[in-house]
């Protein structure tokens, strides 16, 4: 009995190097490459603009199929293509196309009404005059608004640049 189990364990960790084995390895490698290059992109978070929701040095994946049949909704966290195919921004959607967005004493207003943002945990004192979100765009901001407004990179992004959403 023991030798049977040992034999199976050995076969699992040291399978016979047959043609079938190499074909399976090749197919797994190709599938993994395509999956992680085009469908589920690995991300490493750098920067603290989305704290405390997403911390710097955290790891996540960009699920490219999130907006295949729908558009980003308000409060969704999205991955925005920043440069090339490797540099992305992780931000939260606060305004949709056609809406007017503004900041008054740290509070976000959309179409003149204050927006409830339970994910913003740090104090904020931003002031930004109202601006309209263009067609086919969304307005994105990070969750960490404790830094001066000049140091936070936010604004409206074209839908073409929305790559997907974080997996968790």
């Amino acid at each position: 009995m023991n030798s049977k189990v040992l034999g199976k364990v050995r076969q699992f960790f040291f399978p016979p190097l047959t043609t079938g084995f190499f074909i399976r390895i090749f197919l797994i490698a190709i599938t993994a490459y395509l999956f992680f290059s085009y469908i589920c992109l690995p991300l490493q978070i750098k920067g603290n603009s989305m704290e405390p929701t997403y911390r710097s040095r955290g790891v996540n994946f960009c699920w490219r199929l999130r907006y295949l049949f729908s558009k980003p909704k308000r409060h969704d966290v999205v991955v925005v293509r920043f440069a090339g195919t490797k540099v992305m921004l992780l931000k939260r959607v606060v305004g949709l196309e056609g809406e007017r967005v503004e900041f008054r004493d740290g509070k976000l207003f959309v179409n003149g009404s204050p927006l409830e943002e339970p994910y913003v945990r740090h104090p904020c004192n931003w002031n930004l005059s109202p601006r309209k979100v263009d067609n086919d765009c969304v307005y994105v901001v990070g969750d960490n608004r404790s830094m001066p407004i000049e140091n936070h990179y936010f604004g409206q992004a074209s839908m073409e640049r929305i790559m997907g959403g974080p997996l968790w």
């Binding site: 925005v80 921004l89 601006r131 994105v140 936010f154 604004g155 409206q156 640049r161």
Partner: peptide, 12 residues
């Protein structure tokens, strides 16, 4: 080089 443009991704 005759022109360089930095693409503005997020327009405030």
């Amino acid at each position: 080089f005759s022109s360089f443009e930095v693409i503005e991704v997020l327009k405030r």
